[in-house]
């Protein structure tokens, strides 16, 4: 006795596939709404090598951020921040672009760096 595999129903799009496709497309399109756009941020919280540093967003500057793979450069320009010269293999952190609104993050997992924008409320809560 031999059990035949009929792959025809598995290799052709079916109704349920279409439903799933629409659901996932909707989830993708609506995903930005899960994260309400925060206010323009005031400072950055940089977590690197297990220590937390605060850096003002209002002042332009370049900062060396240490990591187990080597330093990356955090660039603050016109109220935006982005990472440059990252030593990690995939450079996802550079591809994440620049951030400016509270709640936005840049993450480099291989190099264990997290840069987070803090809005006015959080800054008040921390420093006053």
């Amino acid at each position: 006795m031999r059990s035949e595999i009929n792959i025809a129903p598995l290799s052709r799009l079916r109704f349920a596939d279409g439903v799933l496709l629409l659901l996932l497309a909707a989830l993708t399109a609506l995903s930005p709404r899960f994260l309400p756009a925060g206010a323009i941020g005031e400072q950055l919280t940089v977590t690197a090598m297990d220590s937390v540093t605060e850096i003002p967003l209002g002042v332009d500057g370049r900062y060396q951020i240490p990591g187990p793979l080597g330093p990356a450069v955090l660039v603050v320009e016109n109220g935006h921040a982005h990472l440059e010269n990252a030593p990690c293999p995939l450079k996802i952190c550079e591809a994440m672009g620049s951030i400016e609104r509270s709640g936005q993050v840049i993450v480099c997992l291989p190099n264990r760096i997290v840069v987070k924008v803090q809005g006015p409320e959080e800054v008040d809560a921390v420093s006053r």
């Binding site: 496709l21 996932l24 497309a25 989830l27 993708t28 399109a29 995903s31 930005p32 899960f34 994260l35 994440m96 709640g103 936005q104 993050v105 993450v107 997992l109 264990r112 997290v114 987070k116 924008v117």
Partner: peptide
């Protein structure tokens, strides 16, 4: 897992449009 374990901020969900579209 990245949010819970490493980032501790939901801000990473900003990647969903790009990653979700690519996943489809």
């Amino acid at each position: 897992v990245a949010i819970l374990l490493y980032v501790r901020s939901p801000g990473l969900l900003a990647l969903m449009p790009v990653m979700g579209g690519a996943a489809i």
